[in-house]
Structures are given as C-alpha cells and as structure tokens.
Design a protein around this nucleic acid. Structure first.
Length: 439
RNA sequence: GCCUUGGUGGUGUAGGGGCUAUCAUGCAGGCCUGUCGAGCCUGCGACUCGGGUUCAAAUCCCGGCCAAGGCGCCA
C-alpha cells in the first residue's frame, strides 16, 4: 500500500538542510539509501539528487504507529518525510531529521540488480543494463552534472561571442560524402541515412550570412569500432565562422575549452571531489605541433610512422606520453584530410587543418574550408567523389560564399578529458556501441 | 572485422575431471537505543548454451551466444 502525494511538496534538498535550520520543519523527498534498524532506534538514510540525510527515529520520540511504519520500509523505496531539523554531533554532517509524518510513495523490488550504495562493485555491462539505478550513485551522477555544466558554459561563451545556435537535419539523403559508414534507414519509399556530421549544413549556413553558428547535436557513425573511446551515437559540438581562417578557429576553440574547464572547476567542486578529480585549468594558448614534427617524434620513439599517414593508435600513445594536456596538431597533409579542407596557400600539400588532442585522445578536428566553387569541385574529383551528388551543397558556393573556418568537438571525449574517464561509455547516459542498442 | 582472455547465487568473486561448490555483499527472519562499510544469530540463493571425450564434465575438447581488454576501421 502506497500513499498519494496530495499537497506534499519538497521544501529542501538534503544538502540544503544545514545546522542553521535547526528546529525548523522541512519536507524532503527521495529514496531510501540504507536502513539501520538498531531495535529501539532506526536510522534511515534518505537520498535525493544532491545528497543523503539521516532520518533518526528513536522509539521514545515518535508515535508507535510511525515507528512501526518506518520499521517496515525497504531499500530504494520512494518516500516523503515531514519532520524537524535537529543538530546532532553524532549525525552525519551534524544534522538529522526527526520525523513527524511519512508517506511511502512507491516501493522497490528486491534484491536490486546492482548495489546503489556502491559497496559491491558492478561491471560496466551490468551497470548499463540498469543504468537508472547506476545513476543513483553519486560518483556516476557527478559525471553528468559536469557534462551539463560544460554544455551550459559553452552555450554561454558562444552567446557572448555572438554565435547563433542552429539545428540541422539528422535525416539525410546522401551517402556520398565518403569516409565513415552511415546508418541506412527507410524514409517512406526511399532510402535515407542518419547524419554523420553537420559539416555540409553549417558550411551552407556560411552562405546565409549568419556569420557565426554552432550546433550541439547527435552524430551517427556506423563503424564497427569496439574501443573505449568510440561510440556509434555521439554528441558533436560544431562551430563555423565566416571571414576567418584556421588560426582564428583554433583560438576560439582553446578559449572555449579553457572557459568550460574553468567553469567546471569553479561550479562543480563537489562533483569533482566525489570523482576524486584534481582538475587543472589548462593554460592558453595550447601548444601547436606541426605534423612534420609529429612524424619525427613518433619515429624517434621507435614507432613507425610514414609521412602522409594518419596517426596509428601506437602513434597517438607516443604523442600522449610526450605531450601532457591539450595541444594542437597542425599542418596536416592535404591528401589525408577531407575534400572541403583548404590546401595551404604557400604549400598546397599541407592543409589548413588541425586536430585538438588531449594526451593520446583526439578531441576535435577543424580547418579553414574551401570557399571557391572551382577548387571545391576539383578537390572532390581528386578524392574520388562525384560533384553531381553534392549539387545542393555546391550551390551554396556559387552565389557569394565567404571564406570560413570551423571545427567539431566530440562532447563525450571532451568530458572524458575533464574527468579522466577511461571508458567513453561512462560519459553517456545510454551509450550506443557496436553491441548495445538498449536501454 | 581480427587477436587475447573470460562467462560460477541478484552483484562481485574462489575453485578447476568425482566437493555438501568458496568468500563477500545481498535477500528473508530474529536480537539490539547512536548507527554511519553497524554488529550478532538462523536461513535462502549459482556453475552461459549446444555437441563431444569419459565410468564420471561446472572443470577437458569443438561450436554458438555474451562480455572484458587490445588492434583495425573512424572524410
């Protein structure tokens, strides 16, 4: 038998109940984290989003009916409690609630699929199967509070800089961009695909005169990768700016990362402490390493890397050991970058593309883009793509496309770099990977 | 997709041809008025699936499924 909510509403979160409130009545709502029944006195640990507070139930201070009602409560049941705040040096955090009235709002089945107190270790697979329970643990929810703060900080920063937040379609017709595999879907009587990147759309927006745009949205990649740093559905923070080159784009990127981490350091102290993370705000500008230097460094450490190759995993690891923190790799060969990347003005073999790395992890890649219609078509042909299938995109380059540059940041990888996560799945509520499609 | 390792109560594990299958946590019941990883007593609960070898398979072999880690792939 459960009670109805009626006119009961929460007055405080558990972490708002401080000594200064002693003697006051409060109404708290949450889950039963633990029950410690000592016979004549019961301690109920009530957990809500922001913390845990002790409800102390001495048999001599509450009615026998209430005492019996509380005695019967079980782990993870949802309750509401009205009571008095009492200061007590014996209570955790020095405060506890002496209950006056209680509502059992819902029960929980037992045993639980995983231990919400975190005393018994559970593997990631088990945790993700029951993710909502996993998220009841503070060391898990802290990650998402931090991720939320990162997004908030980025939106605030870009608004201050005059950027317009846009939304581009995730249902797309073309599979002809080349490169990554796309997820095919049925679009009425036609075939369509899930978008791998807003790249072409945000470039088209440069021809709209919006000048500065960004988008935070999912991207889908149908690669069969099965690693700790890949997802098949990820969140991309994409930005594009007209009348700028790649140097401008690197500058705003490092400023944005700096600001986001500063904000996390300032606003998420508790979460960082819960995670045991000693967050250092990186200094800007970030170091720039030319691709040519990368090849030298990697080879000097005994890992073979030929000029003109992308970084192998082993090469990334070498760079991760040599470079601490965030750094850019610049001067990429035009040959291994996408068709829309601007070749260098002095040496067209070297492009205006850059990657932002955090140790051995690629966080972002960006570039100055080609704004000349003829050059773009030429680059497409050189990469083996058919310009005809890009008609709607190419059209935007015919009627006054300004020079522009931009980048895309993997939000989950950025979060990993901030909290020091080893598995990207830790940074997504419900990850989609090679095997997992539920929950 | 490839390589390696693994799959034992709800969770996390020990064991590794014949065991009553180990331990912790959990769950159920009981005792206990200051717990905070509460404590104590009693009980409950498991060998991934299919085939093979063998007198005998949770254990060895083959295959499937699932997972962990690594790599490849990732304009």
């Amino acid at each position: 038998m459960t009670d109805s909510l009626e006119n009961w509403r929460r007055t405080h979160y558990s972490n708002e109940v401080k000594k200064e409130l002693k003697g006051e009545k409060v109404l708290l709502m949450g889950w039963i984290h633990e029950m410690r029944d000592l016979g004549g006195i019961i301690f109920v640990l009530l957990r809500d989003r922001d913390g845990i507070i002790q409800i102390t139930v001495p048999s001599k201070k509450v009615s026998p009916e209430l005492f019996e009602e509380i005695k019967k409560l079980k782990k993870e049941a949802v309750i509401a409690v009205k009571g008095d705040v009492q200061e007590s040096p014996k209570a955790p955090n020095g405060v506890e609630i002496i209950p006056e009235e209680i509502k059992l709002l819902n029960e929980s089945e037992l045993p639980l699929p995983l231990d919400t107190t975190g005393n018994t270790h559970a593997e990631i697979d088990t945790r993700l199967d029951s993710r909502f329970l996993d998220l009841r643990k503070f060391d898990v929810s802290a990650i998402f509070k931090i991720k939320s703060r990162i997004f908030h900080s980025i939106r605030k920063f870009l608004n201050e800089r005059g950027y317009i937040e846009i939304n581009t379609p995730k249902l797309v017709a073309s599979a002809t961009e080349g490169g990554t595999e796309l997820f095919p879907i049925t679009y009425f009587e036609r075939e369509a695909f899930l978008g791998q990147s807003p790249q072409l759309y945000k470039q088209m927006m440069m021809a709209s005169g919006f000048d500065k745009v960004f988008e935070i949205a999912p991207i889908f990649r149908a690669e069969e990768h099965d690693t700790l740093r890949h997802l098949n559905e990820a969140t991309s923070i994409d930005l594009e700016t007209a009348f700028t080159d790649h140097e401008d784009s690197m500058k705003i990127l490092e400023e944005l990362i700096h600001r986001a981490i500063q904000d996390v350091a300032d606003e998420c102290k508790e979460e960082l402490e819960t995670l045991g993370v000693d967050l250092k705000v990186p200094e800007i500008p970030f170091p720039r390493v030319d691709y040519d230097e990368v090849v030298e460094i990697v080879n000097s450490k005994g890992v073979l890397m030929r000029y003109g190759e992308d970084l192998s995993r082993a090469a990334e690891k070498v760079m991760g050991e040599v470079m601490d923190g965030y750094y850019f790799i610049t001067g990429w060969p035009t040959a291994i970058k996408p068709f829309y990347v601007m070749p260098g003005f002095e040496n067209p073999e070297k492009s205006c593309a850059f990657d932002l790395m955090y140790r051995d992890l690629e966080i972002s890649s960006g570039a100055m883009r080609i704004h000349s219609y003829d050059l773009l078509v030429q680059q497409m042909k050189e990469k083996g793509l058919n310009p005809a299938s890009f008609e709607r995109y190419l059209q935007a380059f015919k009627y006054g496309m300004p020079p522009h540059s931009g980048w895309g940041v993997g939000a989950e990888r950025l979060t990993m770099s901030v909290i020091g996560a080893k598995n990207i799945r830790e940074t997504v509520l419900f990850p989609r990977d090679r095997r997992r499609l539920t929950p």
